[in-house]
Design a protein around this nucleic acid. Structure first.
Lengths: 136, 136
DNA sequence: GCTTGACCTTCCAATTATAGGAAGGTGCAG
DNA sequence: CTGCACCTTCCTATAATTGGAAGGTCAAGC
């Protein structure tokens, strides 16, 4: 199977597949005589794994760890559990941060008429002269 | 005022101030005879504005637009309102995406014992063989 | 047999926002 | 005068992805 087919069936673009190979996330696989990369079902399955993990927001480094665990038939489910739990926690933190931003923005929006006049509490709020604004 | 003082009082690092100048977000300000950048209160206020907007997750391009509105004494609050509303919407979308990720992850975590055995529904879920996983 | 088009290859660069360091100039205090 | 803290510019890196250029390969059609 050529890289294009592998890309289409896995949902990972050919560009990304080459990139993942270059950074060592996936192995330097087999080549045909013409130099073309050659893939089989196992490779596609691995690519789908990566795709799913990316969709869940795992970083490539986290995925690297997950792949190691995946390839290791003797791993414990605890290791995977720990990694996933940590990632979930990161996501939850990010959600909380975004919610704080949204809250402040909604406040500012509520105080701004949105008409033709130049007065705007949003800009004042950002300037730090009127409203206190959340800090990271 | 030197760049270091401006950085400390505005919360924007000296590195970033120079960068914002280089990309044209802020003006190429005055220089002293020795070549050092020189800042006044107005500059610091602008930097604080940028800092607050970054804290609220605005991109530099969005901040560029906000700054234009801020500097324009004749602007309408509607323009600012529209920009902020659009940004709030983006944030809300991102929150929803992250919540979907968190939901799926929590599901997978709940199904995984987290013990010494190698069976782990998390990996199966990512591999796409057992559980359906959210897609972006 | 040659052209066309769809593949594939590598390499190089851009994106976004921030940070780190190197190499060198400036200014002040001891 | 030395030391130290500050400033300058320029180069590099990060993370993940995308884009393009320049070129090789393969099968179909005329």
């Amino acid at each position: 199977m050529q890289i294009g087919t592998a890309a289409n069936t896995s949902g990972v673009s050919a560009k990304m597949i080459r990139h993942y190979e270059a950074i060592g996330l996936i192995a330097n696989g087999a080549r045909r005589d013409n130099g073309y990369r050659d893939y089989d079902e196992r490779d596609v399955h691995e690519l789908r794994f990566i795709r799913s993990a990316r969709d869940l927001g795992f970083s490539l480094e986290e995925i690297r760890a997950l792949l190691d665990l995946w390839r290791d038939r003797a791993r414990s489910s605890r290791d995977v559990h720990t990694l996933a739990a940590r990632h979930l926690h990161e996501i939850e933190t990010k959600i909380a941060e975004l919610q704080a931003m949204a809250r402040t923005l909604r406040q500012l929006l509520g105080a701004c008429h949105g008409d033709a006049r130049p007065e705007c509490p949003i800009l004042d709020g950002l300037g730090g002269t009127t409203t206190r604004v959340a800090s990271r």
